[in-house]
Nucleic acid binder design. Structure first.
Length: 487
DNA sequence: TTTTGAGTTGTTCGA
DNA sequence: GTCGAACAACTCAAA
């Protein structure tokens, strides 16, 4: 009789297209699904508050899905190696299967685990469930990792297609006796005091929620994604990022559906489909970059940025975090993040540019805040996004590209619907002034019952002035580098 | 080895 | 109001 196989779940919280689970099921013996909560092993990037809330709901959903397949989800906490050893001992399992992760801490942890477990005469198999391509497979002709998106994108399109998605195993053989599991609440993932009301109203974590959101997006909206994706006042994006991060939907499943749609549908929707595929490849790019440049979650990819004259200002950082900068589009984004654990991508760029270029605060401070507040907090995506904005990353925005928060607001939230939704004290403001209330005539302010500096803040910096300072700071960096080169 | 073409997402200024 | 140019070189990837 085949010994039991342990399937160690992490960021692959689904049954469909889960290679480790399917392979374990195909061995024919009992399958023991387990999740081990060990945040100390992820330091300094242990899951933040919003992610932990999400994880709690997702583990509940995964447990339910496993029960429907005749199985269970065993929960443990503490040291991962010890937990796996204990399970092997308790169940007589002879093998541990898992889907790989690609972040530096996870890679190091996995190689140590694999070596130890192999040494103790267990069978180990690892799989790829989260990426379209392996980071070591997409390389330039020189054999180096790509640092520019467009050639990376072309290389992905020309590479062998990722494997077809696997269907869920219909039934998982249970062990003769289930090992003990702690209760989900024992993992203490949910916040106390409970601040998660906005998250609950916004999201349905878990594979079922992922699939219904994906299907709605794929049927109705992906065809005009190229046009609608920059409009935070519309439902133009897929909002699948938290599901992708936790592996509740398979990027391969999405990729194959998109590829097929691109070749069979008319040209009008092809552009939307391709633009969305590029977003999946950006996610891929981010993961490959962090794999190849593991220090970049904390340090700039371009070393000269190590001497950038970042400021330190707790008050301004706090105003940014809480959405009280006086720039409505920035404040709307930061409050959407605080309430829902998510922010529209266009607005992420706007608030990030504001932190880094208007306030000259270090991108790491922004990355850390996002890490704690986003339900989709993903080390690779977060790192790429912030380094891109700051100009110190791969294929980064040139330093003189400084977003004007008023222009961005007027262009992408032209009627002010997004601002009114998230900044209720401006809900009576007319569209013409909503992105620059400090310029509004006093009659407009009176009608909207807004007293600047009281009910809504005045701008904490003057953008034109801040822009000048940022350009000067970047110039300083440039001359410092030139001096270094001469030395 | 050298050369060449190209690079997610912007803003401002002046004609 | 609209348009093109300037912003500033630099690095990457491929031929």
């Amino acid at each position: 009789m085949t010994k039991p196989t342990i399937v160690w779940f992490r960021q692959d919280l689904r049954l469909e297209d889960n290679p480790a689970l399917t392979a374990a099921a195909q061995r024919g013996g009992p399958v023991i699904p387990v999740y081990i909560h060990a945040p100390q092993e992820e330091a300094p990037w242990a899951p933040g508050g919003a992610t932990r809330w999400w994880l709690h709901q997702s583990l509940a959903a995964l447990g339910k899905d496993l029960r429907a397949a005749g199985s269970r989800l065993i929960l443990r906490y503490g040291d991962t190696l010890e937990a796996l050893r204990a399970l092997i001992r308790e169940t007589g399992a002879g093998a541990v299967f898992w889907n790989r992760r690609y972040e530096p801490q996870a890679v190091a942890q996995e190689s140590l685990l694999a070596a130890t477990l192999l040494d103790e005469e267990n069978e180990i198999h690892t799989f790829n469930s989260s990426l379209l391509f392996e980071p070591w497979d997409v390389l330039t002709k020189e054999g180096n990792p790509y640092r520019v998106f467009t050639p990376f994108w072309r290389a992905c399109l020309h590479a062998d297609s990722p494997a077809e998605p696997l269907s869920s195993p219909s039934r998982l053989t249970p062990p003769s006796r289930w090992p003990k599991s702690v209760k989900l609440t024992d993992l203490e993932l949910e916040p106390r005091p409970d601040w998660a009301a906005g998250l609950r109203e916004t999201w349905q974590p878990g594979a079922a929620g992922a699939m219904s959101r994906w299907q709605a997006f794929f049927e109705d909206r992906v065809g005009r994604y190229d046009r609608d994706r920059n409009r935070p006042d519309r439902d133009g994006v897929s909002a699948l990022s938290p599901y992708l991060h936790h592996g509740e939907i398979s990027p391969r499943l999405m990729w194959h559906a998109l590829l097929q749609r691109r070749t069979t549908r008319k040209a009008a929707s092809a552009r939307g489909v391709e633009t969305y595929m590029q977003q999946l490849v950006w996610r891929e790019f981010a993961h490959h970059l962090l794999y190849h440049f593991p220090h970049t979650s904390d340090e700039p990819l371009r070393p000269e940025f190590g001497s950038f004259p970042w400021q330190e200002d707790e008050g301004q950082l706090h105003a940014w975090q809480k959405g009280r900068t006086g720039y409505p589009i920035v404040d709307a984004g930061m409050r959407q993040l605080w309430v829902t654990g998510w922010m529209h991508n266009r607005i992420r760029m706007v608030v990030a540019s504001f932190l880094v270029k208007d306030l000259l605060l270090p991108w790491q401070a922004g990355a850390r805040w996002f890490w704690d507040t986003l339900v989709d907090a993903d080390l690779a995506n977060n790192t790429l996004g912030w380094q891109w904005t700051a100009g110190c990353g791969a294929d980064a925005a040139p330093y003189f590209r400084i977003f004007n928060p008023v222009t961005q607001g007027e262009r992408f939230d032209p009627h002010g619907g997004y601002v009114r939704r998230w900044v209720p004290e401006l809900s009576g403001f007319p569209g013409r002034w909503i992105h620059k209330p400090w310029q509004a005539p006093s009659g407009v302010l009176n009608d909207a019952q807004v007293v600047l500096g009281e009910s809504y803040p005045r701008p904490i910096v003057d953008h034109a002035e801040a822009r000048g300072k940022a350009l000067a700071a970047f110039n300083q960096l440039k001359s410092a580098r030139a001096a270094n080169l001469r030395r």
